[in-house]
Computed example of a mutant assay.
Amino acid sequence: MSEVLNFYNYLHTIPEEGFQEFKTSVFLAEKLESYDYDVTRNVGGETGIIGIYDSGRSGPVVALRADMDALGHIIDGKHVSRHTCGHDGHMSMLLAAAQIIKEKQLVKRGKLKILFQPAEELGSGANSMIRGGAIDDVEYIFGAHVRPFEEAENGQASPAIHYASSCRMVIAFHGKPAHGARPHLGINALDAAAQAVNAVNAIHLKPTDNYSVKATRFLCDSGVTNAIPAKAVVTWDLRAQYNKTMDELCAKFLPAIEGAAASIGATVEVLDSFRIPAAELNDEATALLADSISSILGKSNCIDPIYTPGGEDFFFYTVEKPSLKAGFFGLGCNLRPGLHHPDMSFDTSALEDGVSIWIDLVERLLGE
């Protein structure tokens, strides 16, 4: 047995949100240093950690990545941080594996890099690691995520999670204020925004392409009830299973809202636009994970690849460096009721499976 549960029981009690993982990163760095890894703190000027185990012999450079940040929730009217996406489990599995890998001297060739990445939930943590040079010399990179019970049962794992591309668009609609009794003298920003919502809902792509686009926030208030509002702000959530589909969706999105606004004389301003790429997984890396999962859990418990509309900033690594051989596995753990639910929980006994999969993978790539 590893120390994974000890690590989890501590990390679960110190949830810290994106780029605020101060206690978390200190704990992880100190543990890696105690195992005699060459540790770099504050990677990219943020809270990221890199631990290096160099065999001193020629061979591939392999990076294993775990995310560190917790989520913020409003519970009983108060903002609280909680690990409701399983990142505490991800860190614990990787740290426990790193400990055993070093104690048993399992890296016989090449170099192992342990990446503890901040701010996955913000979608900007991977880019901070990239800025800090985390993948400059990396040939293989792997990630992992605990999965809801609908996707994988306890004792099962998938060698591939095909995350979707996601995009947030925040759009301001500018009109002209006027008295409610004289609407002809104004331009109603609320009307423009409402027409834009309908215009976006009328976007149609190839039906067999998995995608969605929907308004998720609508803010408009003139301050009184008898005045024409001059500004409205709408947020949209766009998702597509493939990057090419997202390209097409985005290409149609802005003309739709601009046309809707212009039809009544309003104008459009893009306040925020942020896009996370879809998964780009490498066949060799996926096959290696399948072999490791089958070895640890049995071939029948190595389940099919998972396709999810969820996003994951891990794939900024492959956007930055397309030559990377990237793999990402999903671990079954009876996770309920779902990811990001304020009361999310999972069977922590599954974490030992994750530790074993990581160790097996490293032995396959960096062993003799």
Rank of each mutant, 00 (worst) to 15 (best):
residue 1 M to H: 11
residue 12 H to L: 08
residue 12 H to A: 11
residue 16 E to L: 01
residue 17 E to G: 06
residue 19 F to D: 02
residue 23 K to C: 07
residue 25 S to Y: 05
residue 30 E to L: 09
residue 35 Y to V: 07
residue 38 D to V: 14
residue 43 V to G: 08
residue 47 T to D: 02
residue 52 I to S: 09
residue 55 S to I: 14
residue 56 G to D: 03
residue 59 G to L: 09
residue 59 G to W: 08
residue 60 P to G: 09
residue 64 L to R: 05
residue 65 R to Q: 10
residue 74 I to H: 10
residue 75 I to E: 06
residue 75 I to Q: 02
residue 82 R to V: 06
residue 85 C to P: 02
residue 87 H to Y: 06
residue 90 H to E: 00
residue 90 H to C: 02
residue 102 K to A: 14
residue 106 L to D: 06
residue 109 R to E: 13
residue 109 R to A: 12
residue 110 G to M: 14
residue 119 A to L: 05
residue 120 E to T: 13
residue 120 E to L: 08
residue 129 M to C: 10
residue 133 G to M: 02
residue 135 I to M: 10
residue 137 D to I: 12
residue 140 Y to R: 01
residue 141 I to D: 03
residue 147 R to S: 15
residue 147 R to P: 08
residue 151 E to S: 08
residue 153 E to D: 12
residue 154 N to T: 10
residue 155 G to T: 03
residue 158 S to C: 15
residue 162 H to C: 07
residue 163 Y to I: 06
residue 165 S to L: 10
residue 168 R to W: 03
residue 168 R to S: 12
residue 171 I to D: 05
residue 184 H to K: 02
residue 185 L to G: 11
residue 185 L to S: 12
residue 194 A to C: 14
residue 196 A to K: 11
residue 199 A to T: 14
residue 203 I to E: 11
residue 206 K to Q: 14
residue 213 V to D: 03
residue 213 V to G: 04
residue 214 K to C: 15
residue 217 R to Q: 15
residue 218 F to N: 10
residue 219 L to V: 13
residue 221 D to H: 13
residue 222 S to F: 01
residue 225 T to W: 05
residue 226 N to Q: 10
residue 229 P to I: 10
residue 236 W to T: 01
residue 239 R to V: 11
residue 254 L to F: 14
residue 255 P to S: 02
residue 262 A to F: 09
residue 264 I to N: 07
residue 270 V to M: 07
residue 273 S to V: 03
residue 279 A to Q: 03
residue 280 E to S: 14
residue 284 E to Y: 09
residue 285 A to E: 04
residue 287 A to P: 13
residue 291 D to I: 05
residue 301 N to C: 03
residue 303 I to R: 09
residue 309 P to R: 06
residue 310 G to Y: 05
residue 310 G to N: 03
residue 312 E to I: 04
residue 312 E to V: 09
residue 315 F to N: 08
residue 316 F to A: 09
residue 327 G to C: 10
residue 337 P to I: 12
residue 341 H to T: 13
residue 347 D to H: 04
residue 350 A to L: 13
residue 355 V to R: 05
residue 355 V to N: 01
residue 361 L to I: 11
residue 364 R to A: 01
residue 368 E to M: 01
